[in-house]
Design a protein around this nucleic acid. Structure first.
Lengths: 143, 143
DNA sequence: GTTGGTGCAAACGCTTTGCATCCAT
DNA sequence: ATGGATGCAAAGCGTTTGCACCAAC
């Protein structure tokens, strides 16, 4: 996180994109949030830092960040517009259904499964989408 | 599928719901489709059988069918309003990104993973959402 | 005969778009 | 300086809702 400022800037520049305060704000908000956020919530938080930010900018920014692979879109039942920072390696979200917090787990059993599916059905698996839901340690604890 | 007509009817009645031609039409369309369908596509097909069917009915019907667990909502990238018949046992969809066809695979490695996650993090996994994407045998074949 | 279901059309709300302005480079 | 990014407001469009009528029970 320390040298992130510079590398992010380069990251944008290398792709012919500008590094704007709005984009940095969205990134920093997602980075600091343990749970996925809705577009509305992201907008609300960005406006605390940059009060004039329009909702359209949030939409445009998130689209770019998802394209860049920095941010992940999370689908949960009816809720299809939630976003989290993309984990660095290959990981999957572990979403707490109580508090909405998101952990990650790196272990991925899908490679093996994919292999077997290809052998059995001829279907070649190219990607997978996995999300786990449950209760985090705190939310399990009696209050 | 033979004695389905009667059991479906009872299925609705047992829940205080009526068994209408529109609901049966949606079910039969989903049953006969190997791939998931969008709301618009379902509407189009229902109208071939019942020309006066309104779009609102499709929305209302799908919501009920999903609640009943008969139908599954599929999320694929930006497309969040696609529906397939729910597989009977515990299965996961295998979606072909070319033709949209959906196969199922019953093998589920998640139980083991869930166990290990609980041991390592204290997070208790209650459910999981898994979708695989790739190319089915036909779509891999050279044309 | 009841009551839930349907069709229609209007309302709604989220998302996208056009355009003038601004600012990162 | 200049082209991409932003803010604003309007347009667009998928989804939901209200209500009168209809049909399953």
């Amino acid at each position: 996180m320390a040298a992130k400022g510079k590398s992010i800037k380069e990251f944008f520049h290398n792709r012919g994109l500008k590094c704007t305060p709005q984009r940095l704000a969205v990134l920093s908000i997602l980075e600091e949030s343990p749970k996925h956020l809705s577009i509305q919530e992201i907008h609300r938080r960005v406006k605390k830092i940059l009060p004039d930010t329009g909702l359209a900018t949030i939409y445009r920014t998130l689209e770019i960040l998802v394209d860049l692979g920095l941010v992940l879109r999370v689908h949960q039942g009816d809720e299809c517009q939630n976003y989290v920072m993309a984990p660095l390696g290959h990981q999957h979200p572990l979403v707490c259904t109580d508090c909405g917090k998101v952990l990650d787990f790196a272990e991925c059993p899908m490679e093996d499964v994919a292999q077997r599916i290809t052998e059995q059905t001829g279907f070649s698996v190219e990607k997978h989408f996995v999300q786990l839901f449950g209760k985090c340690r705190q939310c399990q604890a009696p209050l």
